[in-house]
Design a protein around this nucleic acid. Sequence first.
DNA 1: GTTGAAACAGAGACAGA
DNA 2: TCTGTCTCTGTTTCAAC
Lengths: 153, 153
Amino acid sequence: MPLTKMDREILKLMQQDATITLGELAHRTGQSASSAQRRLQKLREDKVILRDVSVVDPKKVGANVSMLVEVELERDRPELLPPFMRWLVETPEVQEAWVTSGRGDYTLVVLARSVEHFDELADRMMELNPNIRKFTTSVVLKTLKRTLAVHVE
Amino acid sequence: MPLTKMDREILKLMQQDATITLGELAHRTGQSASSAQRRLQKLREDKVILRDVSVVDPKKVGANVSMLVEVELERDRPELLPPFMRWLVETPEVQEAWVTSGRGDYTLVVLARSVEHFDELADRMMELNPNIRKFTTSVVLKTLKRTLAVHVE
DNA sequence: GTTGAAACAGAGACAGA
DNA sequence: TCTGTCTCTGTTTCAAC
């Protein structure tokens, strides 16, 4: 089922501020509150909206160092892939992880308390995952933008 | 003011699911609901919690192509930097943008409807920002993990 | 830090288009 | 089937203790 104009408007607003009330949602979309409620419920049911989360300022909780990490793996040890992926998913300092074409096989966003902490994490990663051939890191000097919001036109 | 054990617990829970009620928050932290309410309010006031947002599944709204883009700029045209940064912030397909050490000056996460759409965006980026010396793109083949959640130990 | 009252939002039932 | 109204229930907010 395709998204209606109202659905898209709801998604846009909810991605900006999920604490908006049904009344406000109704007002902004020009529909009734119960309409907004039904559409919102359906968007959740259909997993268009996956979840609502609080966004925390890393600096306010002592997480000061972001790193972009490109990891290259041994291609001939496929049996070590699942443990590596599990490590990525389970390690809370790993915020994002993609399989990419191009230079690195994997690209990670890692958030640590300090350079020392990051170093420990990198050591642990190498230790636990012997299939890592090499990895390169870029220090994030400045974060200009950070959102998971998807543009719905 | 440092974070209490309760604050950290609240942040952990709210980053997983911001629709949790004060009652549940109280139960999980072993404190009273009004305590949870006051701590939560303070976390918002202090901008530890920046905002609450819905997380939307990109695939469900027709955004199928993620790209990691490394942009290298002309160093001798500092006057063109602010417009470039404004473009990054204003372009909704740009989800993330970091200034990094290492190869690329800037690293972007771009989410587009299709490869063609991404190509248009890249063209527009080059057109609007004559200080871009070159850029390289990596196609995201698979997203293993994607969160803004900050680990609070 | 706790309690209680008032305001409010959300979920479901229902009727009409 | 989709829309809006109504009502009940649970939640949040705020003030007083």
